[in-house]
Amino acid sequence: MTAPDTPVVLRVAGRPVGRYVTRPELPARLSPRPFLHPVTTLAGTAVTELSPADHTHHLGVGVAVPDVEGHNFWGGRTYVRDQGPTELDNHGAQRHGSFQLRDPDGFVEELRWIAAGAELLRERRTVAATELTDTAWALDFTFSLTNVTSDALSIGSPATNGRSGAAYGGFFWRARKEDTAPAVFTADSEGEAEVHGARADWLALAGGGSSRSSGVASGGGWTLVFAGATDTTRRDPWFVRTAEYPGVGSSLAPAERLPIPPGETAVRRVVTVVADGRLDRDEAAALVRKAVSQ
């Protein structure tokens, strides 16, 4: 029998493409939580980073939220209104509970979000890896957050606390940092300034190799195409960084705090295409359609 703290190795077409660590040994300041790293293309190119020097609390692929009723599940400093980023002793942790399913191509996991000795949220996380083509696969990541307290709680972000343009919190993918910043584009826009905060159906991040200004396909490199970030009633905006560091996430609380009443659940799903080579818009859109429909 596999030990519960043994990392899960995701495989596609028999090849390892992701390593999921359930019980990382991390300092409290990093808001310890399960994460995927490394995640690779089918050719073996790594497309994640773990605790890079620029942001040591960036942990590959996972769920991170900077403000759950004032508790930091993101790591690092907390943005305080009229004060700015501040070191606070307010870090929470996501604790692995159990696997309901654990297979080579995915798993279903239960986690507890704990802060100040109390459980605030219970999460059910479903992750699946699926082959799309001989050069691309999809990571299907769904998380459900249930308020297990007897009180109303809400999720915030630096944006809801006064920092414009910093609505990070939710699904987050820290991509590999290279000498040249990656290209980022959607079906109808391009560049960090245009894409950040958009509620686009999908968003592509492309690095390595070479590319023309339009982000069209060329030899070498890698492309990540993100789609979803929705529940049944809304589409979350995208949080995007390319110049400072490469990262893409969904924004649970872009302008207002997201309330989760006692016993209720917030659900989000993000499907990410992981492809070798730099895709153009048509290629990215086609792969996303295939990934989301599976």
Score class of each variant (00 low, 15 high):
A93I: 11
A128L: 14
T146W: 00
K177V: 13
R33M: 03
F143G: 06
A46R: 12
R163F: 10
W113E: 04
V225C: 04
A275M: 05
V184F: 07
R241A: 11
W238P: 02
S31K: 03
V270R: 01
T41M: 02
Y79A: 05
A266V: 13
W74R: 02
R289P: 07
F226A: 07
T78P: 00
R289A: 09
T160L: 07
K290L: 12
G162I: 07
V8M: 05
D140R: 09
S189Y: 10
P24W: 07
L252H: 02
R15Y: 02
V39G: 00
A183G: 13
L252Q: 01
S51C: 09
L205K: 00
T160W: 02
F172V: 10
Y20A: 03
G84L: 13
A227C: 04
S218M: 15
L30W: 10
E194V: 02
A46N: 09
T180L: 14
E256A: 04
D89S: 14
D201Y: 15
T230N: 11
A217C: 12
L36R: 00
S214G: 13
T22K: 02
D54S: 14
S51Y: 01
R289S: 07
R235N: 14
R124M: 10
V39H: 00
E244W: 08
P52G: 05
Y20R: 02
T230Y: 02
H91D: 10
D134W: 11
L252M: 15
H58G: 09
I155Y: 04
T2L: 15
V65H: 04
T56D: 08
D276G: 04
